[in-house]
Design a protein around this nucleic acid. Structure first.
Lengths: 203, 203
DNA sequence: ACCTGAACACCGTTCAAGT
DNA sequence: ACCTGAACACCGTTCAAGT
């Protein structure tokens, strides 16, 4: 099955862009990476166009909505996260250990840009969002990990992968606040893990 | 102990406002209630001033920041939530049942206005925020409930009230998405509760 | 002491005019 | 086919002028 629907990237199935368009496209993406890194996922689009050295109209031509731009920036790490989930399953570690690593991975990626977790979390329920597909990929990756662990009988019955995904997204959103430390994030995820793993907690 | 620091309300310790100022103040609050109910906590301040029939400067005179306005709107229910926490402790129910009620209360209030949970969650770490005090009140209420249950020995050791507060705030933030049902919220809170309560879950 | 409303800066979005 | 940049609407914020 060939992914015909993916488009607008740099080298996949779509009809190639004109040279100048392609150059602008890449300058916009680079500028967006900068601005989002500095200001978060709500950074000014004007500022991005300015730094890319293009008119605002050019940005809109390539990325009709802010989400389309975020979607492009998510490309890199979405596939990385999916790969991580495969490894998590393949490693065959105990449920608790597997979840600690997997959730930590997930939160780390979701908090790469401030505000991104909130956007992702909202798009999970919005089929019309340009990043819905990416959300699905993440949710699917999570579902594979959780279902795998459920099959080994190490999880409580009735645990829905979807609820775990949302919970972890919630942790990522509150983790966006500057004052939340890695230890606190780990502690919060620990509570969630204790809530779904069957074996009694070490402490 | 008299709460001397509370101000800007309608009838407490502060020097009374001039009649016209007072009228405007109340018109602004009423308009804000409307707009926030319709558009969430990021609703337009211009729109609020317009509906209140005052100039934008008047709104700024009474509420220098958006948070100050939110703070005023939170007045009602903050005290209600605190009272709920007192009842939760006094009722002396089993830990699981107590937490189910308490967390449900908390999330229900935090999601009253869209976007409010996110603001609250951010302000928890920001002493300079006008709503920091209210956040503290909520966090304190939660701490009383959790500490009480911890003393009865029904909770796992090492559970920090602060982490639970953040987790519940996270649930509230993701619950802001329209598509999240009450059942899903209950399920997510259920996982968190399973993560902190000692007795084996019914299922 | 309080209010008004004009003014400014900034942003998202559109579109006619260009090449 | 693609780009530019002016134009518009909207918003938050400030402040001089009024009463």
């Amino acid at each position: 099955m060939v992914p015909v629907t993916e488009q607008a990237g740099t080298s996949d199935g779509a009809r190639p862009m004109r040279a100048d368009a392609r150059r602008n496209y890449e300058k916009i993406v680079a500028a967006a990476r900068e601005v989002f890194a500095e200001r978060g996922a709500e950074g000014s689009l004007d500022e991005i166009a300015r730094r890319a050295g293009v008119g605002p109209g050019t940005l809109y031509r390539h990325f009709p909505t802010r989400e389309d731009l975020i979607d492009e920036l998510m490309r890199d790490w979405t596939s990385r996260v999916v790969a991580d989930s495969d490894n998590a399953v393949a490693a065959g570690r105990p449920a608790r250990e597997t979840l600690v690593r997997w959730f930590d991975d997930l939160v780390r990626h979701l908090t790469l840009h401030r505000g991104a977790a909130a956007k992702l979390s909202a798009a999970m329920d919005d089929r019309s969002s340009p990043i819905f597909r990416k959300c699905q990929q993440l949710a699917d990756a999570n579902e594979r990990v959780v279902r795998h662990l459920a099959e080994t009988g190490e999880l409580r019955r009735g645990v829905e992968p979807r609820h775990l995904m949302r919970l972890v997204a919630g942790v990522a959103v509150v983790a966006d606040a500057a004052a939340v430390t890695d230890e606190e994030i780990a502690a919060m995820l620990g509570i969630v893990i204790d809530g779904v793993v069957l074996d009694p907690a070490p402490s």
